[in-house]
Design a protein around this nucleic acid. Structure first.
Lengths: 343, 343
DNA sequence: TTTAATTTTTTACGCGCGTAAATTATATTT
DNA sequence: AAATATAATTTACGCGCGTAAAAAATTAAA
């Protein structure tokens, strides 16, 4: 490889003995130039190690290969995992994903949308903060750029929504818990930062009533995204304060459940199904780490694979058809009961 | 807010009655224009909601406010956490971080470096994959762009290295474990994907020998970044195969330890310090989740705050001084023993 | 009010590339 | 070999903005 540094396509074109527009064409699609030309370009490429500037490329293109992925909080392994899968799908489909996290901050979410605008994305995959989001800004964004909404639904926003069927999943778990023991109390945050919490709350109440049980809800205090810590503290006060009307707790999400398990462990309560267990605990999400709690956490899994693949595919179709779909499609994937040792 | 859409600075300048270069100056630094002018611009800003295109801005600037952050595997909460902190630091310092993950793939690491080149970053914070990295590509990158290396050191690459003192940390843990019980066996992967593993291995051997003990190492099989799963499976075979020469296991990292704890739990081994415990397990990293294992995991914490802050600050200084430092600075932060219940 | 100092505007060019239209060169067919 | 089809080149302009230099307008000082 030569030591000379190549600044731009002009220089590279000169060195390879081909005109710049042809080189440009080559980078857009290597098949679109004559084989002999292609060979010459590729030989030069080996010698000089030039790569076109991606953002300059996209500046004057009507259709770019950039896509944005925006999630509310990347340090949460749930989002990290689903983002990773979507990223991989989009790369395989020939796109270049840019992943951004809003760190739980609605202002940063808006800023990130502005940043995404700047890369002229062909489309965006958006998991919004939810209630905290600045709806107007998001709506404006989606009006301009084809967007697939995932994980958390903002009604009417984006061309499509792909998500988890919280209602079905909640029913599934309550039915299982009721069938195999006492009906559960619901353990949640009073003001949850994560989306989906409301839906789960409502589904819990509705399902309990349908089954003829009285809903019983424990709402723990706490702000922010340190959900395990909040679950732990809330669990301590709930258990020591004897707020539990049954021996079965259904947590709004796995991270709260993980904290609750830690509290139970510390207080010497045995958690699980068998005789001699004082408590059953179930979660929701199938968080990457809940296979490794002690006891392992019974939970409901999102269909991660389907949600990631469908979101990605929906966006790709949207982009490649070139049309904005007339009606907004909503696709929900059923949750799956993951029976482990905690309930 | 008006319904009209503004495409570029030209249009916005026309609507606000100010010339484009002055508007450009305003966006660079609002204080640099006359107060009356600033007012007019800001009034127009409220009306029309225009934002300059970030990448077009940077295209022709000698010094941009973009910085890149590249980590090997973002779905690992360790990297998610440290990246989040660095991102926040850089935002506060007035920079615009772009966070990228290589998903454990060296080729993607090189592609990400190319992508970073395209945004003309003022500097880059790089946690390389380590041994798997394509050293030549990284060297070339660092020659062109001021880079601070963090977490995993690639000797001679980047202007500075900021990381965790694996040697001190390993010594600290071995001394603690030895003092409070039997000297530990070392539990690691035969071919670890994560950086730092080698250093810890060497430090283990050296420290054990210094203390007059025979090093005993269990190397588990497995590829990829599913470290908990690998730790679990390796733990199962190690325990059932009676490969343990002592009752104390020091894991190369917390994620392996988490898997190992799950295996011990499943096999009915009590883990912890007290009488009646068959095993002691310690980890390394202070992974965000090891506070919530059962028993809680004794480990060594990186000085997350210091590493993130120092990396960010070093890069900012490097950028703002405008010089490339003559000698490569290496800063290691000592680990801290986090005593919990598992050892 | 005049003069000097500071801003702002105008003008003009550059960044690295896309892309369309017209022209020229090369390959394929008859 | 001539005619046709295909590909490459030249030319020219655009994307959204930075920035430098000169000219014009505004403000502050004398």
């Amino acid at each position: 490889m030569s030591a000379e540094k190549i600044k731009n396509m002009e220089e590279f074109a000169a060195l390879s003995g081909i005109s710049r527009p042809t080189v440009s064409k080559y980078f857009h699609d290597p098949e679109s130039v004559r084989p002999s030309t292609r060979e010459r370009i590729e030989k030069a490429l080996e010698q000089y190690d030039y790569r076109p500037n991606i953002f300059a490329m996209n500046q004057n293109r009507k259709l770019t290969k950039n896509v944005g992925i925006l999630v509310p909080y990347l340090a949460d392994p749930f989002f990290a995992e689903i983002a990773r899968r979507i990223e991989t799908s989009m790369i395989q489909a020939g796109y270049r994903p840019i992943l951004l996290s809003s760190h739980g901050d609605p202002r940063l979410e808006v800023e990130n949308l502005d940043l995404l605008r700047s890369i002229k994305p062909a489309g965006v995959l958006l998991a919004p903060l939810g209630r905290a989001s600045e709806r107007a800004a998001i709506e404006r964004f989606c009006k301009d750029i084809p967007t697939v909404n995932f994980d958390a639904n903002i009604e009417g926003v984006g061309e499509a929504f792909v998500g988890h069927n919280n209602t079905q999943a909640t029913e599934l778990m309550i039915e299982y818990l009721t069938r195999s023991g006492e009906p559960p109390v619901f353990f949640e945050m009073r003001s949850p930062p994560n989306p989906n919490a409301r839906k789960r709350h409502k589904a819990y109440v509705a399902t309990m009533e349908r089954l003829g049980h009285t809903p019983h809800i424990i709402q723990v205090e706490g702000e922010g995204w340190e959900l395990e810590e909040i679950g732990y503290r809330g669990g301590m006060t709930a258990i020591t304060g004897r707020q539990l009307s049954t021996n079965t707790i259904f947590c709004s999400n796995d991270r709260l459940a993980i904290g609750l398990l830690a509290a139970a462990y510390e207080l010497g309560l045995r958690v699980g199904l068998g005789g001699g267990c004082a408590l059953r605990v179930a979660g929701h999400d199938n968080h990457p780490f809940c296979r490794y709690t002690c006891p392992t956490l019974t939970t409901i899994s999102h269909n991660y694979g389907a949600i990631a693949a469908t979101s990605a595919q929906t966006l790709v179709e949207l982009i490649e058809s070139g049309e904005r779909s007339a009606e907004r499609r909503t696709q929900l994937f059923d949750g799956e009961l993951i029976m482990r040792a905690s309930a």
